[in-house]
Amino acid sequence: MNGLAAKLRHELAAFINSPHWRATLEAVPRELFVGDDVFQHDGSRGWVPAHRSEMRREDWLALVYSDQSLVTQVAGVMAEDATAPIANVWSTSSSTLPSLVVRMLEVARIGEGVKVLEIGTGTGYSTALMCHRLGSDAVTSIEYDPEVAQRAKIALTKAGYTPALVQGDGLGGVDRHAPYHRIIGTCAVRTIPDRWVRQVRPGGTITTPMLGWLGGGVLAHLRVGEDGTATSGFPEVVYFMPARPHAAPPLDMVKMGVGEVSHTTMDPALLCDQTGLLVAQLAAPQAQHVWIEKTLALHDVTSGAHADVQPADSTGWVVHQYGPYRLWDAVERGLAVWLEAGKPDQSAFGLTVAGGEQRVWLGSPDGPAWRLPG
Rank of each mutant, 00 (worst) to 15 (best):
W90Q: 10
P285T: 07
L335P: 01
S141L: 08
E357R: 15
W328R: 03
Q310K: 04
V74P: 13
T205W: 04
G35F: 15
V218D: 06
T265F: 00
R45G: 05
L171T: 10
I184C: 13
T127I: 11
D227T: 07
H221R: 12
E31D: 12
E31Q: 05
M130F: 08
K153Y: 15
G233R: 09
E340I: 01
P242I: 00
Q358R: 10
V200N: 06
S364G: 13
P179S: 08
G168T: 11
W60S: 03
A23N: 01
S136Q: 10
S95D: 09
R359N: 06
T72G: 13
A284T: 10
V290W: 09
V174P: 13
T186N: 14
D42I: 06
G173H: 11
T157H: 07
R333N: 09
V309I: 11
D169E: 12
E80A: 15
A5Y: 02
D252L: 13
A297P: 05
A312G: 14
P209V: 03
P250N: 14
T157V: 11
A149K: 13
H306V: 08
S18L: 00
P49R: 01
W370M: 05
G168N: 15
S303D: 07
Q358M: 13
Q358N: 08
W317L: 02
S95A: 13
L335D: 01
L12T: 01
I142C: 03
P85L: 10
M266L: 14
L100H: 03
S314M: 10
G374H: 13
G233I: 03
S126I: 08
G173E: 08
Y239K: 06
V114H: 12
